[in-house]
């Protein structure tokens, strides 16, 4: 299903009502805190002033995509408004957690580590794929529009079905599989480690896949993340030449590297700054070099 629903001016949702009812408490608390700070902070006046400026617009306005196939009121996709009290350093994930814990406990999204390593919370924020935990609210225009990753089926609210993504990842034999294993430590040159380093940073968040036009149109396309995974092993000198050849055959399949049209959208959204497009290009060059038949 598409997440691009027309915005509805629906009657006030329960969430909105309770949002307003609760608004006083955290605000009140924050103002108290502020007062305390002012009292003891002659020497930090300057800093304090900056802080107050940042706090000026007390709350952040979120527009969050809602959908639940089971719940009558949510079967028709809609956007709910949440007003979240802002604190310095607050991320999109912090704001979602605040909204869930204070206004609507049914608000559903994946999250775990809060530090951009578990890859659970890739979302579509103000029109681009980003990790909720890695995105500062203060960098965003209001209202902050938060949607599930496009081009994936929505399970509920911001949760998408990851099955297809995992299948593509698994389809490239994503495991180290050397021709020979020595008795003791296997050596790897610093240069070779450096070569694969960026590719090993992938956290499987699926932001790249979601941003890719080709993947959107061709469900069988391996996609940037899986090709990057293949690159990680193909370029690892420890596996050996024959294994590399087999890996090249995997990425050269019908729905492999040649589908990529070098639009760089995957590279642009990757939260770990992996040069995905370059990796795909390098595999193409390697394939040409090997003079393999391709389609």
């Amino acid at each position: 299903m598409s997440t691009q629903v027309p915005e509805q001016q629906a009657e006030e949702t329960e969430a909105e009502q309770s949002a307003q009812a609760h608004e006083q408490t955290p605000q009140q608390k924050r103002q108290d805190k502020k007062r305390e700070r002012q009292e003891d902070a002659a020497k930090r006046l300057q800093e304090e002033e900056q802080r107050r400026e940042m706090d000026a617009d007390d709350t952040y306005h979120l527009k969050v995509f809602r959908f639940d196939p089971e719940v009558a009121a949510k079967q028709e996709p809609r956007f709910d408004d949440f007003y979240v009290p802002f604190e310095k350093g607050m991320t999109v994930l912090d704001a979602l957690m605040y909204a869930r814990d204070h206004y609507d406990s049914s608000l559903t999204f994946r999250h775990s580590c809060r530090q951009a390593v578990c890859g659970s919370d890739a979302l579509f924020v103000n029109g681009s794929q980003r990790l909720g935990c890695q995105t500062q609210l203060s960098d965003l225009e209001e209202p902050v529009r938060i949607e599930p990753l496009p081009h994936q089926d929505v399970v509920k609210d911001l949760v998408v079905d990851m099955e297809h993504f995992y299948e593509q990842m698994h389809s490239v034999q994503p495991y180290f599989d050397p021709e020979e294993t020595p008795e003791g430590e296997q050596r790897q040159s610093k240069e070779n480690h450096e070569k694969i380093k960026m590719s090993t940073r992938c956290i499987w968040c699926a932001a790249c896949m979601s941003s890719c036009n080709i993947a959107a149109g061709d469900n069988e396309y391996l996609g940037p993340a899986a090709i990057n995974k293949a690159y990680r092993f193909a370029m690892d000198e420890r596996e050996g030449e024959n294994r590399m050849q087999e890996r090249m055959e995997i990425v050269e399949q019908n729905h492999g590297v040649w589908r990529c049209q070098t639009q760089f959208s995957c590279t642009n959204v990757c939260p770990k700054d992996i040069p995905l497009t370059e990796h795909i290009q390098e595999l193409k060059r390697e394939a040409v070099k090997r003079n393999l038949k391709f389609w």
Partner: peptide, 11 residues
Amino acid sequence: VADPSKTFNTD
């Protein structure tokens, strides 16, 4: 538990 749904009920 406030969320009435069986689907992905993190509540």
